[in-house]
């Protein structure tokens, strides 16, 4: 079975919008299982405060997230092709960058960016799946994190807990949602495999 899975995933392209807590962890999970091509994008640089949840290392602080994530993925699985963009995504460039992707993962931190991506993908790529992460702040309450699907839109998270001073984003819950997003990507990509 593992060879069959590899054979299918090798042919697939997944777009990941944002390389922070959700994006870096989701991308690493998809790279480990051998998704053939990852298109990743983020405009930000790594801050030491990101290391409480994002898949980067202390010696990468100051580097661009998109390029640092590409470097980390290549160290884990050099067979994965990574196309990295150091760019601030908007409703125009999303349509160019992710046009060849089978699935798009929404991995932003800010709600208005999440909203922009979901609406843009549902409007201009009505046949593509989008897997969004909504509600992951704080700690504990694992069973509140779930997924639901409506058409091409898949929502992962508790849909309730927004990041704030009292509820920071922390590695465990962010990692659960990021890996749940990766898991839903696999469910779609491996549909029908026997």
């Amino acid at each position: 079975m593992i060879q069959k899975i590899k054979k299918v995933l090798r042919t697939k392209t997944v777009g990941i919008a944002g390389c922070g807590g959700l994006g870096s962890n989701c991308a690493v999970a998809l790279a480990r299982v051998g998704v053939g091509h990852l298109v990743i994008a983020d405009f930000d640089s790594i801050d030491v405060s990101n290391l409480n949840r994002q898949y980067f290392f202390l010696n990468q602080v100051g580097e661009k997230k998109a390029y640092a994530l590409r470097d980390n993925i290549v160290k884990i699985n050099p067979e994965v092709k990574v196309t990295a963009f150091d760019i601030r995504l908007d409703k125009h460039n999303v349509r160019e960058l992710f046009i060849d992707c089978d699935i798009i993962v929404e991995a932003f931190d800010l709600a208005d960016m999440k909203h922009m991506l979901v609406e843009t993908v549902l409007t201009f790529f009505p046949d593509k799946y989008i897997v969004t992460g909504v509600g992951l702040a704080g700690w504990g309450d694992s069973n509140a994190i779930r997924m639901r699907q409506m058409g091409q839109l898949i929502i992962c998270g508790d849909e309730t807990k927004e990041v704030s001073q009292e509820l920071p984003p922390l590695a465990p819950r962010v990692g659960i949602v990021a890996n749940m997003q990766a898991n839903q990507v696999l469910e779609i990509l491996l549909k029908g495999i026997k």
Binding site: K114, I155, E159
Partner: peptide, 12 residues
């Protein structure tokens, strides 16, 4: 009808 109302919140 099948209706979705999704509230986008920050965090990632």
């Amino acid at each position: 009808d099948d209706v979705l109302v999704l509230h986008m919140i920050s965090g990632g």
